[in-house]
Each structure stands twice: as C-alpha cells, then as structure tokens.
Simulated assay, not measured.
Amino acid sequence: MANPPKIFDTALIAAHLARRTPGANNFVLDLVLGDLEDRIGTLIRDFPRALIIGPDIDALPTMGQSASASFTYQRLAAFAGPDDLTDLPEGPFDLIVSLLHLQAVNDVPGYIARLRAILAPDGLLTIAALGGDTLTELREAFLAADSLVTGGASARVAPMIQVRDAGGLLQRAGLALPVADVETHIVRYANPFALMAELKSLGAANPLADRPRRLATPALLAAAASAYAERDADPDGRIRATLDIIWLSGWAPHENQQKPLKPGSATSRLGDVLKG
C-alpha cells in the first residue's frame, strides 16, 4: 500500500510544542478535558486499563471517573516521535482516549486502526480533534491577503476533518456503534494579532509540510488583519474565531453488544405509533 501523503510536518509540530510559552493558558485543552469528564461520567462501565494520548502530557489527567468506578489513566505524549504516533504500549486497553492529536495526523485511517488493534473486546475508543470550521475566519483572511499582496495563495492554516466523514473512519477501522458529533465554540479576541499570538503561544503555528518557507511580511500580516476585521468583527471591534471540536467514539466488537434488528422484523407500523 502506498504511503499516505505528508500533509503535516510532525517534527515541526514537536518543535513548536517545545517552544510553548511557559504557563500559557490552554483553554482549548481545558474545554476538551471538561467535555471528556462529562462523557465518560455517564458510562456505567469499569475501565481497568485506560490510555490517554495528547500533545501536553503533563496536562493530561492521571485519574478518570465513570458512572460506576474511578480508574487510572496511562498517559502517552503525542508528537513525541518522528511518526504520527509514538510506540504504543502493549494492550489490550478497555478505554483509549486521544485528545487534540488526530487533526495533525498524516495517516488518519492508519492511526485509528493502530488504536483499534490494542483495544480490548467491548473496549471504547474516544477521540477529540479540532475540525469542521475551526479557524475558517483566519484561513479566509490570509487567502484574501495573499491575493492582494502576493497575487497568489499559500497554505497557512491546516485543513480540517469534517464531521460528516468522521463516522466512516470509525467503521473503516472495524469499530461498532460509531458516533460522531461536534461541539462549536465562538471565541472572541481584541484583534487578529491577539489570536495569532495565542496560537503561537500554544505551539499551534502553521504545521503544514508544504508551508511557505519565507516568514510572513508585515504587509501581509496587516492585510490579513484588515481582511479579518472587515469580515468577522463584532460591533464592539472584537473579532470572532470559530472552534469546532469533533468527538468520535466507537466500541471494539463484542457478542454482548446491542445489534440492529434485521430489515422487516418490526412488529408495528410507524404510522400506528404516531397516531397513538
């Protein structure tokens, strides 16, 4: 099988993460961790062996809580090696959680398949990744600025996974009961430069392998900021940034899992139920 195209420079991502501003408030990770706690907390399930993967290992939780029991996470750093995923620990795991990693993986189907391979029967895989319309305002602003200043276009904001494609990725990996949904947040900043500064402080600068090799000029940045403010500013002058967090979950197949009924096996008509 041919190797997947190299869209993201994982070594560059690791370098960006290593240069993060000490003590920077990672509100995106805080949102994801809060949502993860709510989602796991509704499950009446024990997780004797649980693995959690993320780009900031020190910020990942060591303990989790389901509706029935507390459990311990084994933590694994994302972007710690030259590949999309560092060497995985030996499974099987009853729960695998991947946070804010999938959006910068070159081989997405392969990544999910590798996690599926160390999942115990009836084990749960949960993934949270940036996707959808995340930073679409910044992307459009840079496209307009590049067209104005350079007469062309350059890749400056990473492509995003769409939620409509996500469920198929889980099924392709052989996971049962796949679910894909999206949490949309609108974040506001004083100006586009404040947004760019925060992305840099979080180690989230341009991660693309096919990125422009020359630094953005002051003229380009000014044009991008102007285009951003013109398109996506509120009446008070602050600008909006879209943040879509896509959640994926699926279970390793097991004979005790619920299964869909066979076509034609219904014992009542939908019209009769609605009338009732």
Rank of each mutant, 00 (worst) to 15 (best):
S249W: 04
K259F: 14
G264T: 04
E255W: 06
P253F: 10
A241N: 07
D244H: 10
I239L: 03
W251E: 09
K259R: 15
E255M: 15
Q258S: 02
S265V: 05
A266E: 15
P263I: 07
T242D: 05
I246P: 00
A266Y: 04
S249P: 09
Q257I: 04
I246V: 10
S268N: 06
P263L: 11
R240W: 07
E255R: 15
H254P: 12
W247Y: 11
L261T: 11
H254V: 05
A241G: 12
N256P: 03
T267V: 12
I245Y: 04
L248Y: 03
G264P: 08
I246T: 10
A252H: 06
G250C: 01
P263K: 15
P263T: 09
S249E: 14
H254Y: 12
I239V: 15
G264V: 02
P263M: 13
I239M: 02
W247I: 09
G250A: 01
D244M: 05
P253Q: 06
Q258I: 10
L248F: 11
G250F: 01
P263Q: 13
P260H: 03
R240E: 10
P260W: 02
P253Y: 08
W247S: 04
L270W: 10
N256V: 14
Q258N: 08
Q257C: 02
I246H: 07
N256W: 10
L243G: 08
P260Y: 06
G264E: 03
D244A: 03
R269G: 06
N256L: 10
S268Y: 13
A266H: 10
W251Q: 08
T242M: 12
E255S: 13
L248G: 02
T242P: 01
K262I: 08
L248M: 09
P260V: 12
T267K: 14
G250N: 00
L261I: 09
Q258R: 13
P253G: 13
W247A: 02
S249Y: 09
A266G: 13
W247P: 04
I239H: 05
W251N: 07
A252R: 01
Q257G: 01
D244Y: 05
H254L: 04
K259D: 06
I239D: 01
H254W: 04
T242Q: 11
W251K: 13
K262F: 10
W251L: 15
T267A: 14
T242S: 15
L248I: 13
P260D: 08
T242E: 08
I239K: 01
L248C: 05
E255N: 05
L248V: 03
L261M: 07
L248D: 00
L261D: 07
L270C: 01
G264Q: 03
S265I: 06
A252C: 12
L261C: 06
A266S: 10
W247D: 03
S268M: 13
P260N: 02
Q258F: 03
W247Q: 05
Q257V: 08
K259L: 11
P260L: 05
W247F: 09
L261N: 10
D244S: 00
A266I: 00
A252E: 11
P263R: 12
L261G: 06
S268Q: 11
Q258W: 12
R240I: 15
D244P: 01
L243D: 04
Q257P: 11
I245H: 01
P253H: 07
R269P: 02
P253A: 11
P253L: 04
